[in-house]
Write a protein that binds this DNA or RNA. Structure first.
Lengths: 197, 197
DNA sequence: CAAAATACCTAACAACTGTTAGTTAGGTAA
DNA sequence: TTACCTAACTAACAGTTGTTAGGTATTTTG
């Protein structure tokens, strides 16, 4: 039955996403994935040509699921600053909910070759980045929108990525790990800089 | 002679830093390192107990070299905002010059266990982070200094880390990869937010 | 019902992994 | 000369890796 085929294939991909995100490509063996799925290693090769192909299918799957609700926010009829605020809150929430996705992106940044970077940029980030770029221009036509857009993303993502180490750094509080708190801080910083709070 | 011993050991560590930073722990074999050094794999075990130990020695070495000139800047007699500006420019320059260092930190963020996070936080980042925290408080006593300090670091590091992908994103220019340009953007954002430029 | 396709299996392969045992050449101290 | 230390070596180990060939139930199709 097709449902069964699709089902197993999907379970393999879902398991792979989690494993690759957690441990990285080289640290996950074909046997690990097979164990997680509950089949034998050789059976994976019925569904995928090889490990590399399975990995690429996994990141494509993981990345294609994103970028859903965010475009609406960026293109709504609200004033620019409200749209930015909504975007930051929503993006922070989405990113904090999907740790495997964030980790996969980090890993791709480190280990992805030029071709994969291009894929990521054009197929995953393009629409969102372009819309964010336009929004930044709307807020301040004078600024370097490319740099500003990167800055916005960096603020959100880095606070999330540094969660495990911030715990050991001065002044850490529990609330610093909450998505809403991070979003609030980032939006305030973008609006006022460091000087007001 | 001691000089010879220290020399080989140092060459091993230097080679390891580059390889581990570039490819990651699991993707670098003991034979790769030996080849890079110009000795046989077994000879590595005269200088280090095992691969893990060599890796730890490499990151300690790489991390201990930093944090030199930065403390002076943070503790100088200049006004707070000037100190922040100087710090951002210097930090951006240092980070952009030492790519292996940046990559090792990224990898540790992803794969380091709690113990290594603690080591990183307390032995590598502590002094700098605390000083930066104090500087932020000086600039604005009202703000959440922990979050703000992370934000400052995130802005600098993320612009550097995203270099390979920003190339494919809208509005990219060559100058966006230059340390001084990044520092200027970050400092301006921190002072004025997005609104002024 | 027979044939074919599906989705799994067992068993094994060659290559590579970290690591160890044992050896050797050269320098140093008694 | 003898004994020891240093810093490298050769050769091999046991385990893991990605992958393949060939077999086997179950389901679908002609």
């Amino acid at each position: 039955m097709d449902a069964v085929k699709e089902n197993t294939r999907q379970i393999i991909i879902d398991s792979s996403i989690k494993l690759f995100a957690q441990f990285g490509y080289a640290n996950v063996s074909v046997r690990d994935i097979a164990d997680a799925v509950g089949i034998k290693p050789a059976s994976l090769y019925y569904h995928f040509d090889n490990k590399q192909t399975l990995y690429l299918a996994s990141i494509k799957e993981s990345f294609s699921l994103k970028a859903s609700g965010l475009s609406e926010i960026l293109q709504s009829q609200e004033p620019a600053e409200i749209r930015l605020k909504n975007y930051i809150y929503k993006f922070t929430a989405l990113a904090s909910e999907d740790e495997p996705f964030c980790r996969l992106i980090q890993r791709e940044m480190l280990d992805g070759d030029e071709q994969r970077m291009q894929y990521l940029a054009e197929k995953v980030f393009k629409d969102q980045f372009d819309a964010l770029d336009l929004l930044v221009i709307e807020i301040n036509p004078q600024c370097d929108s490319h740099m500003s857009a990167i800055s916005i993303l960096s603020l959100v993502l880095y606070h999330l990525e540094t969660t495990p180490i911030r715990y050991f750094l001065k002044g850490h509080k529990k609330q610093h790990n909450q998505a809403e708190f991070i979003a609030q801080h980032v939006f305030n910083l973008l609006m006022n800089g460091l000087l007001k709070s």
